[in-house]
Write a protein that binds this DNA or RNA. Structure first.
Lengths: 118, 118
DNA sequence: CCAATGCATTACCGTACGGTAATGCATCCA
DNA sequence: TGGATGCATTACCGTACGGTAATGCATTGG
């Protein structure tokens, strides 16, 4: 059980709760793919959600530090913050790394070949 | 919104929802560390939970395939299934791998040095 | 300048989920 | 063999969370 007046949840805990929602993960995926996108560009991919829904998910992602926002005229540009995701996820993954030696090697090779956008 | 009569959630989605709970992640961590543990051995680490709570979390982990159980007399031995976690998590991680080249290299080196229990 | 655009924020609602209590069912031991 | 142990399962409750609707506030174009 969680209480609002106690912030004992670890950063890792917060992260997994943020990632537990499929819409937010798709938003992260889109931002990882394109580097940065405006809210309306993001919203195009979620026809089932109204604007406030999009906005709320982006608030959650911002609060977790997984994305950052900057004004661009009257639009708002969202950018992914990959290091935040890495620094929260990779330490946790390290506990299971011994089981995954081969798979991690493949993953690392993927990382070398591809280049991030921008 | 999710409806019970529609099982459109992807395996990845299920996985993140399972991992969203800190208790379940600690259970996985303990099993990753020890290889396999009985329910009461696991329960020792969760003094705030009653037995049914422990059992429910283990049910969720079992349903996701992240752990497997076998009878050991009147005890029940839980074992981690690391490949299931890997096959669900690593494809998702691959999308972000380009951002994490260095960190993944460190992680892979960790995997090489350490050996899994049993 | 003033209506329209782009987005944030708030209030509110229903469902999902974590928790406990109660019950039951094997298995072991004295 | 009968009570105790180890665990699963079910029913039930409160909170957290995802969703929409309504409102507001900059910014921009006509």
């Amino acid at each position: 059980m969680t209480w609002w007046w106690l912030t004992l949840a670890s950063a890792t805990d917060d992260l997994f709760r943020v990632l537990a929602d499929g819409t937010r993960r798709r938003m992260l995926d889109l931002l990882a793919e394109h580097g940065s996108l405006t809210v309306s560009q993001l919203a195009e991919h979620f026809p089932d959600l109204v604007a406030s829904g999009i906005s709320k998910h982006l608030m959650v992602l911002r609060a977790a530090g997984l994305v950052s926002a900057s004004r661009q005229g009257r639009r708002r540009l969202y950018r992914i913050e990959p290091e935040v995701l890495a620094s929260a996820l990779l330490p946790w993954l390290a506990k299971y790394a011994p089981y995954w030696a081969g798979a991690l090697e493949r993953l690392r090779r993927l990382a070398e070949e591809a280049e991030p956008p921008e």
